[in-house]
């Protein structure tokens, strides 16, 4: 059953790893603004799509 030492060590390490990740996220300002990123996330795709649509248009224009 000494494997339990190993298991405990792993579980505590994983837990502490997540805890450190949490601290870093607060430090980096992830809790400053919890709303805007959720909106911003939805933009990127649309913008790229628009640009690519335009590119394809200019391509056809060139032909």
């Amino acid at each position: 059953m000494t494997i339990i030492y190993m298991l405990l060590a792993i579980s505590v390490t994983v837990a502490i790893g997540f805890f450190i990740a949490f601290i870093i996220s607060v430090k980096k300002g992830q809790y400053e603004d919890t709303y805007t990123p959720s909106v911003r996330m939805l933009f990127e795709d649309e913008v790229i799509k628009e640009v690519s649509a335009e590119n394809s248009k200019t391509k056809t224009d060139n032909q």
Binding site: E32, D33, Y35, T36, V39, R40
Partner: peptide, 8 residues
């Protein structure tokens, strides 16, 4: 760059 903080 410009970044918006919507709630604020």
């Amino acid at each position: 760059t410009s970044q918006v903080d919507f709630p604020k």
